[in-house]
Nucleic acid binder design. Structure first.
Lengths: 100, 100
DNA sequence: TATTGATATGAAAAAATTTTCAAGTTTTCG
DNA sequence: CGAAAACTTGAAAATTTTTTCATATCAATA
């Protein structure tokens, strides 16, 4: 039931999850606050199942989490972040990624 | 692909260049200082042309540069970096990546 | 200049990722 | 309960990346 967070994910593997235009957009949307799949897609306008597949990749990378909210599903950015000299940065293991 | 601004597009492109185990290793090797292709491969032990292909991708992403040095070729990390609260971070456009 | 050492390139094969399409859940509502 | 809304899943097709292999280039040297 709980979404497993694979500890053995390498840095490159997480980077790969982020290194995609669509997923990068999703991440940025979610970093602004939790949103339902439909709300995300109101911005991106993708084929419904395609977004779902991308969300799964982000979930498996441990970058986002989903919780059911009625018949909708709410996604939120998982702050795998840590304080890095003043600003929050996503910790990818071998490197820190910070959106300004 | 649907809505994705130019900024996140080029950012994802650079992230893609970095999001690969081999290229990530090459980058980290070069961040320690310039090295010849042979020296890089002394560490990685890849098929000669394969490393060459990877180096090309890093070059095209503007992350490294090559200069001829006799019959060898010297590669160096291109500091697309900027000071980010004390430590050097690679500026990818939409985000900063910092190795520690 | 012919040869050798160091690396690059191009094309085809192999592998991985992305997109589509059809069908399956879950939850709410009449 | 049956239907609808909001998603997810799985499998196949489409596309992109990665790897291999054979060949080419460039510079130093015999």
């Amino acid at each position: 039931m709980a979404i497993a967070n694979d500890e053995s994910k390498s840095c490159a593997e997480r980077l790969k999850a982020i290194a995609d235009t669509t997923r990068l957009s999703v991440l940025q949307i979610l970093m602004a606050g939790p949103k339902h799949v439909g709300e995300i897609n109101a911005v991106l306008g993708l084929e419904q199942s395609l977004l779902s597949h991308h969300l799964k990749i982000l979930r498996q990378a441990g970058l986002v989490e989903a919780t059911r909210d009625g018949k909708a599903v709410l996604y939120h950015f998982v702050p795998t972040t840590r304080q890095h000299d003043g600003s929050r940065a996503i910790d990818l293991g071998c490197c820190l990624l910070s959106f300004e």
